[in-house]
Amino acid sequence: MSERPDNDAAGAAGDSVVHGERWNDDLAAYALDALAGEERRIVAEHLEGCEPCRERLQWMLPAVDVLPATVPQRQPAPALKARIMDVVEHEAEPVAEPSRGRPRGLFAGLSLRPALAGIGVFLLIAAAVTGYVLRDGGEEPSSFDAVYTATAEKPASGAHGKLMVDGDAGMLHVADLPPTGDGQVYQAWIQDKGSAGGSVHASSVFVVSEQGVGDVAIPHGLSQARRVMITREPKGGSRHPSENSLLTADME
């Protein structure tokens, strides 16, 4: 479309020139998004029924599209990309991959999510599977690699739990944990195997019922874990445990 379209031919004989004069200026303003309200509607309606004017607009649009390229070019701060990609990776659907043998059973899919998934996602996962896994000591699905008992650091508290592991993911069911205070949640921590006690990583946050019962999904990190621990933390969770473990599931 290098030749300028002649929309003067659109009108009836005798008024073709008038047609072009009538619309060409409006089309330029329309292309620049400089028409408002009723005027914009009138031009849009006219375009629906006038092929020559549509061609004329199409011919003109590259002159508008080039305007951003006339702007002095700057480099955004790298932090902008980091912020955008944080959100994108958080929101990304797990990409379907051929089976690598590992994910299966109840937690297939959970463990595919990238490690960048945030605490909010963990809560959603926990909520989604809570009703399926266990209900106050109900039956366990049989497809776990291993099940470990979680015991209270202070046995007198009576708190206990069960950690069900499926590959790198797992589900911890707890009971008889005391209610958290206002502005507090429980948080799971994973301690790795390895020398010097192994590093500790933050995992999901969760709350318990009035009876002290709750379930927390642990989407990844268990294949190299030595133990899973539970602490009370401020709402939103913490980067590091702020107290000694209340409940621990030893996996060795």
């Binding site: 300028r4 060409n24 200026d25 409006d26 089309l27 330029a28 303003a29 292309a31 620049l32 400089a34 011919w59 003109m60 590259p62 002159a63 508008v64 080039v66 305007l67």
Partner: peptide, 16 residues
């Protein structure tokens, strides 16, 4: 205003 917009866009269009 609209006439100047049209003339300007036509000239840009010719240059690109």
């Amino acid at each position: 205003v609209k006439g100047r917009m049209r003339l300007g866009l036509e000239k840009i269009r010719a240059q690109i």
